[in-house]
C-alpha cells in the first residue's frame, strides 16, 4: 500500500517535470534545468558520502573538469553534444581514478582535506593555465551543434535543452540507483557502518572505495558537461571549494540516507534561493540557519524526516 502511494507520487513528480515548459512560466525552465543538473551532481556525491561514508571536499573538481571538457570540445572540435558528454565523463573518470587512488587510503578529516587539496589544485591549474582554459575568465562563446544519434534537436532552445537534460539525468539516475541497490551498493553501505567488518569478510575496502569514488566522479563529470551549455561558460568557480560545498549542503538538506535525497535537496536549495533572493539579499543567512537546524536536529534531511513522520502517522 505504502509503496504504491510512493510510486504514485514519484510518477506524478516525473509527469510534472516533463510538463514544466508548458505549465510553468518560462523562467522556471531555467530553474528546473539547474535543479536537475545540480541534483545529479549531488546524487553522484552522495554515492561516496551517504553510501560509503567519505566526506569529500573536492567533488567540484570532477564537475568542473566535465564542464571544461564539453566547452573545449565544442570550441575546438564541434562534436555532437552526446560525444561531448562522453568526453566529459571520460575526463572526470580519469581524474577521479588518479585522485581517488591517492585519497581513499585516508580517513575522515584527512580524506576531506586531501580531496580539498586536489580539488583546489585543479582549480589553480584552470585559473592560471590561460592559454588553454582562458584563465579566470573561463571559456565562453561556444554554441551547441547537433545532439547526436541523428536526432534533430534545437539545443539552443531552452525548453528543448531542458528536456534533453531531463532525459539524460533520468537515465543517469536509474543507472546510479541500480548501482546503489546492487550487492556492490550494499557493500558500500557496510563499509560506511563498519569498515573493519567488511575487511574481515575478506573484501578489499580500499578497492570498493576507489570504485565508488570513480563512479561518483564520472557522474559529476556528466553533470558538469550538462552545466556548461546551460551557463554558457565554463569557469574556475565551477572548480572552487565553495562549489564542492554545494552537493554537501544539498545531500544534507534532502537526506543522505535516501537515493532521492540529494535531488530533493537540490530542488529545495535552488527554489529557496530563487524565492528568498526575491525579497532579501540575505539568502546565505537563511541557508546557514536552515543548515544548522538540519545538522543539529534533522540529521536525516527533509526526505528522511518526512518519511519517518509518514511512517509514524500511517502505523
Amino acid at each position: 500500500m505504502k509503496s504504491k502511494i510512493l510510486m504514485a507520487i514519484l510518477a506524478l513528480v516525473i509527469a510534472g517535470l516533463i510538463a514544466v515548459p508548458w505549465i510553468a512560466s518560462y523562467f522556471y525552465v531555467f530553474i528546473f534545468t539547474e535543479i536537475l543538473i545540480l541534483g545529479l551532481f549531488a546524487a553522484s556525491f552522495n554515492l561516496i558520502f551517504g553510501y560509503t561514508g567519505m566526506l569529500s571536499f573536492g567533488h567540484a573538481a570532477f564537475f568542473g573538469v566535465g564542464s571544461y571538457a564539453t566547452a573545449l570540445v565544442l570550441i575546438h572540435l564541434q562534436w555532437p553534444f552526446l560525444a561531448c558528454l562522453l568526453v566529459s565523463m571520460g575526463a572526470s573518470a580519469l581524474l577521479a581514478l588518479v585522485i581517488g587512488f591517492l585519497s581513499v587510503r585516508l580517513n575522515e578529516v584527512y580524506f576531506a582535506m586531501l580531496t580539498l587539496a586536489f580539488g583546489m589544485m585543479v582549480f589553480a591549474i584552470a585559473y592560471q593555465w590561460r592559454s588553454v582554459t582562458n584563465g579566470s575568465d573561463g571559456l565562453a562563446g561556444f554554441s551547441l551543434g547537433s545532439f547526436g544519434l541523428g536526432l534533430d534537436l534545437t539545443l539552443g532552445n531552452p525548453s528543448v535543452y531542458y528536456h534533453v537534460v531531463l532525459g539524460i539525468v533520468a537515465i543517469a539516475s536509474i543507472v546510479l540507483y541500480v548501482i546503489c541497490r546492487s550487492s556492490f551498493g550494499m557493500i558500500l553501505k557496510a563499509i560506511r557502518q563498519n569498515p573493519e567488518r567488511v575487511s574481515f569478510a575478506g573484501l578489499n575496502v580500499r578497492t570498493y572505495r576507489l570504485v565508488a569514488f570513480v563512479i561518483a566522479g564520472t557522474f559529476a563529470g556528466l553533470a558538469g558537461g550538462l552545466i556548461a551549455p546551460f551557463l554558457r561558460v565554463a569557469s574556475p568557480e565551477l572548480l572552487h571549494w565553495s562549489m564542492s560545498a554545494e552537493p554537501v549542503l544539498m545531500a544534507i538538506l534532502g537526506g543522505t540516507g535516501y537515493f532521492l535525497g540529494p535531488f530533493v535537496g537540490s530542488a529545495v536549495f535552488v527554489l529557496l534561493e530563487t524565492w528568498i533572493t526575491s525579497f532579501t539579499e540575505s539568502w546565505m543567512l537563511v541557508l546557514g540557519i536552515i543548515l544548522a537546524l538540519m545538522v543539529i536536529f534533522f540529521r536525516k534531511g527533509l526526505l528522511g524526516t518526512l518519511i519517518d513522520w509518514w511512517m509514524e502517522v500511517k502505523k
Binding site: 575522515e108 578529516v109 540575505s282 539568502w283 543567512l285 546557514g288 540557519i289 543548515l291 544548522a292 545538522v295
Partner: peptide
C-alpha cells in the same frame, strides 16, 4: 563525528558572513 562539526561550523560561517 568530525564531519558534523565541519557541517555545523560551515553553517555558522554562512551566518557570520551574511551578518
Amino acid at each position: 563525528d568530525v564531519a558534523d562539526s565541519l557541517l555545523l561550523t560551515f553553517a555558522i560561517l554562512l551566518i557570520i558572513n551574511e551578518s
